[in-house]
């Protein structure tokens, strides 16, 4: 299988704080990679770099064969204009920890907005697709509701539908259940599992070890800006080789 995401020696600093210290990672098409690690380990920064929400200092990232944020011409890399970056992002879905739904738009308008304005889809077609997506996340009856009228779990499911509306080749989840009440976590994870079983390529940053064990093809453990260990869930979660992985798992399990 081909690499959907290819990350090579990526470094990123915020001021004097180096949050990514040489990340190498490959995610194949159809693979589900779950990234674990203590807070401050750089997981979210890495995820945001894949979408170019964060610009890396050195190294490069490619998604589906094209460099993120740059265009190669001969032996030079040209930085992309904002418009071109926005276009690249339509191929990558991103789901935020805090949902970030647009509160002044209805659920349906939230989902329809990007296909219409970024992909120039006809509105009617986008509405039909949005209704199908809402049915898929179990919220067909909430199309006319405003985000604040929904529970956290419902909001996150809408956010997933919104990301899916662009028919992305890759889905990125940044701690999708961390802002939810415990009894609402399951409904969101079920939607993500469903997508995973349908062969969607995704990278999920999470603290849900059970979810990682059940859904992940690969578990990546990060600490202090580096990938410490990666492998099948059975290897990394049940027989961790590295001390730091063991220490982390003993705390969260």
């Amino acid at each position: 299988m081909t690499a959907m995401v290819d990350i090579r020696s990526v470094h990123k600093s915020f001021g004097s704080l180096e949050v990514l210290r040489g990340i190498d990672l490959e995610v194949r098409s159809g693979e589900v990679a779950v990234v674990l690690g203590p807070s401050g380990s750089g997981k979210s920064t890495l995820l945001r770099a894949i979408n170019h929400l964060e610009k890396v200092d050195s190294g490069w990232i490619s998604v589906a064969g094209s460099l993120v944020g740059y265009r190669r011409q001969g032996d030079r890399l040209y930085e992309l204009r904002e418009r071109e970056i926005l276009k690249q992002r339509t191929r990558i879905g991103f789901v935020f920890q805090n949902f970030n739904l647009f509160p002044h738009l209805t659920v349906l308008e939230n989902i329809v907005e990007a296909p219409v304005s970024a992909l120039r889809r006809p509105r009617k077609e986008a509405v039909r697709a949005a209704e199908a997506l809402l049915a898929r996340v179990g919220l067909a009856d909430k199309a006319a509701a405003y985000p604040r009228q929904l529970s956290g779990g419902q909001q996150q499911r809408v956010a997933i539908a919104r990301a899916l509306a662009l028919e992305p080749e890759l889905l990125l989840f940044d701690e999708p259940t961390s802002a939810l009440d415990p009894e609402l976590v399951g409904e969101v994870l079920d939607v993500i599992k469903d997508l995973a079983h349908q062969g969607t390529t995704m990278i999920v940053v999470t603290h849900e070890i059970g979810f990682a064990r059940e859904v992940a093809d690969t578990v990546v453990f990060m600490d202090d800006g580096r990938i410490v260990e990666r492998g099948a869930p059975a290897e990394v979660l049940d027989a961790p080789r590295h001390e730091r992985t063991k220490a982390f798992l003993s705390k969260v399990l």
Binding site: L53, R89, T90, F96, N100, F102
Partner: peptide, 13 residues
């Protein structure tokens, strides 16, 4: 987060 979400969705500036 609103701007970030809009940017992540590729909505023109």
């Amino acid at each position: 987060g609103q701007l970030e979400a809009a940017a992540a969705l590729g909505i023109p500036r």
